[in-house]
């Protein structure tokens, strides 16, 4: 049911783990629906310098998480924001139809991490001017 590429990412997922001093964290899903993805990003010069994930979910959930980290590492935030869930699925050679919605949320988690980074930076920026 899964493409070889999905199975390959499921078997050897890239960038698993956490970044303790992450610049942004994005999470999506909940335990009730059976999928939770959490992405950590480290940003340098407007680029995603490092990215890691932790995922609770099915094969598709793990593979899309892994794929999105591979797709955006080294990319600018603007480029990363343009990556869609659909693009992640396509990069994996497609997903079974029933997985397109419930387990294909990795790009959303990434966008949340970037938003979190921007929010934090704005917060810091303000603090900076005050000091």
């Amino acid at each position: 049911m899964y493409s070889e590429k999905v199975m390959e990412h499921f078997t050897s997922p890239r960038n698993v783990g956490e970044i303790p001093d992450a610049d942004g964290i994005g999470e999506i899903g909940n335990p009730i629906c059976g999928d939770i993805m959490r992405l950590y990003i480290k940003v340098n010069n407007g680029k995603i310098e490092d990215i890691k994930f932790k995922t609770f979910g099915c094969g598709a959930a793990i593979a899309t998480s892994s794929m999105v980290t591979e797709m955006v590492k080294g990319k600018t935030l603007e480029e990363a924001m343009k990556i869609s869930n659909k693009a992640v699925a396509e990069a994996l050679g497609g997903l079974p139809p029933n997985k397109m919605h419930c387990s294909n949320l990795a790009a959303d988690a990434l966008h949340r991490a970037i938003e979190d980074y921007k929010k934090r930076r704005n917060g810091q920026g303000n603090a900076g001017t005050a000091s």
Binding site: P13, V16, E18, E27, P31, I36, M37, R38, K54, T55, F56, I62
Partner: peptide
Amino acid sequence: RAMSPLYQ
């Protein structure tokens, strides 16, 4: 489990 945010 090592991959799971719930476990962590």
